[in-house]
């Protein structure tokens, strides 16, 4: 066990962590806005990966260039989700809300399995390939670009939410729905925008990951679980908390896998979740 291997694990963890952070940010945005946990988040990630896969395999568009299309598709999917499912259950009991999004996740996953079979696919010969070697640490180029794009998207999301008028309206709706409506912010429209942006984040992460990750129908489950953990870790509804939480999770995953036993990677992350929600239920960076 040399320091190089540990450094390698840290770099890998950081790169994965940035992707987790963006996925979690989408989840956190939706949760903060309307108190609904999107249990179909992993399936939305899977959909966006398949979208960029099919754009590549049917039309020959490389995953990097198809990202805007994927974002558009997923944003539409988010609005559709809100329009056809979420707006009916806004006032329902939490149990019903959980069951509804859980049902959506089962539905999307099994439809995908029916249409596309559970086979593993990957994008063959994307533009981004190969790896760099910096100070004896190997960095896969697609991974590096993916994490940089995710970071940029994350910063963009943060600036959007904190600086623009629409972003402030989103925050206002999240804080007090009725007060915002009195001030002329239509909450239903805001919810739709929230879903569109939340799934747009997922689309960026999924589109970039389709460069190097295997694409199959169950791919989203682990990412969604990590996103739940990241959201709880960062504090429900806090977007900047997701960034730190995502990085922590990425590091724990890769270092735990290296130092203890790689087959129990999931368990280390879950252990962190349990520790955090038990001892600091508001999350590491939560406001409440």
């Amino acid at each position: 066990m040399t320091s190089e291997i540990i450094l390698q694990a840290i770099v890998t963890g950081l790169m994965m962590g940035l992707i987790y952070a963006l996925i979690a940010a989408g989840l956190s945005l939706i949760f903060g806005l309307m108190d609904i946990v999107n249990f179909a988040h992993g399936e939305h990630l899977m959909l966006s990966m398949f979208s960029s896969f099919w754009l590549w395999s049917l039309f020959g568009i490389d995953p990097i260039f198809s990202i805007p299309i994927t974002i558009l598709l997923m944003a539409l999917c988010g609005i559709a989700t809100h329009y056809f499912l979420i707006r009916y259950i806004l006032k329902a009991k939490m149990l019903i809300q959980i069951c509804a999004t859980f049902g959506l996740s089962i539905f999307i996953r099994s439809i995908a399995q029916l249409l596309w079979t559970p086979d593993f696919r990957n994008v063959d010969k994307p533009l981004l390939e190969g790896r760099l070697e910096i100070a004896s640490v190997f960095i896969g180029q697609p991974q590096l670009i993916a994490s940089i794009v995710c970071l940029v998207a994350f910063i963009g999301l943060y600036l959007f939410v904190t600086r623009t008028e629409t972003g402030l309206a989103l925050q206002a709706t999240a804080q007090d729905r009725q007060a915002a409506e009195i001030l002329g912010v239509p909450s239903n429209k805001m919810f739709a925008i929230g879903w569109a942006i939340g799934l747009g984040c997922v689309a960026v992460a999924g589109g970039m990951m389709s460069n190097y990750f295997f694409i199959f129908t169950d791919v989203g489950i682990n990412f969604a679980l990590f996103a739940f953990v990241a959201v709880a870790l960062g504090g429900f509804g806090s977007i900047i908390g997701c960034l730190y939480a995502g990085i922590i999770i990425g590091l724990v995953e890769s270092l735990g896998g290296l130092l203890i036993d790689p087959s129990f990677k999931l368990l280390y992350v879950f252990a962190i979740y349990l520790l955090v929600v038990i001892y600091r239920p508001q999350g590491l960076f939560g406001r409440y």
């Binding site: 499912l85 009916y88 259950i89 329902a92 009991k93 019903i96 809300q97 069951c99 509804a100 859980f102 049902g103 959506l104 996740s105 089962i106 539905f107 999307i108 996953r109 099994s110 439809i111 399995q113 029916l114 079979t117 559970p118």
Partner: peptide, 22 residues
Amino acid sequence: TGGAVDLIFYGLILMVICIFRP
């Protein structure tokens, strides 16, 4: 179960029940 048709029904039923008959 490979085609997961029954799971599609499950998901659909769950959503429909949640919307119309909680």
